[in-house]
Simulated scan of single mutants.
Amino acid sequence: MSLRLAFYGESLSELLEILEQLACAGVKTQLCLAPPTSLPADLEAIGLLCAQPTALLPLRATIHHALTAPEALGAALEGSVDSLSLGTSAIPVVFGAPEQGRYVAFRGLHTQLYPEALWAIARQETDLAVALHQQTERFSLYDINCLYLDAGREAVRTRLREIQADPDPSVVFFDSLSAAHTALIGELLWERKPPLVAGSAAVESALLAAWKTARLLPESVTLSKPERVEQLFVVSGAPPEQLAPQLTWARSQGFFCHTFREAGRAHKVITGALSVGHSVVLYAGSPAPTEAELTQTLSTVLKTQKVKRLVIYGESLCRSLAASLAFDALEWVAPLLPGAPLCRLVGGPFAGTELVLCATPPEQADFLASVRAGTQS
């Protein structure tokens, strides 16, 4: 099957949320932290941690999704349009995901819905089109508001044809207040197959609704149930104060917790602790080690000690993993927390190793208990 979707952005936690969303629906998906060199033939969706889709172009995905927040929409659109050479294509922008509690009414993005007072809400919320215009004046701005959506499919199609006739590059904002709106937006996206769509994970929600209607999703999905493991290897590049609650819990559970000071020493003591069955937490002290030092220690330890499940904390540390561990991609295994699922390494010398990536350590002191059990907190 051809690659339906390539999604990309600079927020690792949001990319992981999309990976989980697609995988739970039965879409064969992988997430890459570095440009991919090889992919399975049956891959249907791919994610990439990057700002622009240049590395994804050879894959010829049907739709490219620029994952972005409203405050970064201008830069995301300009970079993606240039990379994809879109010319005057009308670019849909989708942020509303009613099933997840995020609504767009008359271009205002909000998390509470009062149907009897939509105009008042619209005046109070940030107008997405105004926010974009403050970031860039490159595009003509249009919208498909909830009145068009409620008027039905043909009304929206007519409006889109009018917008596409504009000779200038344009952006089309979609309102979304209900599951019916989500389904209609997804149907229109899949019908028109624009090369670029921008917005949040609401894009995937809409596409999944369309794929379900078109019977492009399996009727049932059997999710894996990971086994409990007794040993974890946790490497944290986050500030120690963020990790403090988990360190207290880990020490109470017999984890070996070691502050990184020097690579050779860290490798020696961690290897010793793992070899006798301890779970280990290696964390940054003061002065903080570089990401290169931590990832090099991690890869060196893994070459001599078989560890089934890893936990990595720290945005920069997560980003530097691909080069150090030489893996191709991540596959989703099971849910733990939103934006922090249990994944599996694909390719490279440590293929099959499970890991959890978090930009910052979760607040739950006993989060590592969930990781060890392989179940949701």
Rank of each mutant, 00 (worst) to 15 (best):
Y103V: 01
T126C: 14
E99P: 01
V94Y: 04
W119Q: 15
L118K: 03
T126G: 14
A117E: 12
V93N: 01
P98A: 05
T88H: 06
L86V: 13
F106T: 02
T126W: 10
H110C: 07
S85R: 14
F95W: 03
G108N: 06
L128R: 00
I121T: 14
Q112I: 04
Q100P: 03
V94L: 09
A129T: 05
Q100N: 13
A122C: 10
G108R: 04
L84E: 03
S85A: 15
W119E: 15
P92D: 04
A122T: 09
D127R: 09
V93Y: 02
R102D: 00
S83P: 08
G87T: 13
A131M: 14
A117M: 10
F95D: 00
L128D: 02
V93K: 02
H110S: 07
E116V: 08
T111V: 07
Q124A: 15
L109T: 07
A131S: 15
T111R: 11
P98W: 01
V94M: 07
E116F: 08
E116G: 06
L118N: 07
T88P: 02
Y114S: 12
V130P: 02
P98S: 04
Q124N: 13
L84A: 07
E125L: 06
A97I: 00
I121R: 12
S85F: 12
Q112R: 11
E116Q: 11
A117G: 07
H110T: 07
T88G: 03
L86D: 09
A117T: 09
S89K: 10
D127Y: 08
Y114P: 03
L86R: 13
A131F: 02
G108H: 03
L113V: 02
F95H: 01
A129G: 14
V130N: 11
A97M: 01
F95E: 00
D82W: 06
A129Q: 09
L109Y: 08
L109W: 06
E116T: 08
E116A: 13
I91P: 00
S89M: 09
L109D: 06
Q124M: 13
P115A: 12
V94I: 12
T111E: 10
A129P: 05
R102N: 03
S89Q: 13
G108A: 10
G96N: 04
A122L: 09
W119G: 13
E125V: 03
L128P: 02
V130F: 10
L128Q: 01
Y103M: 04
F95I: 00
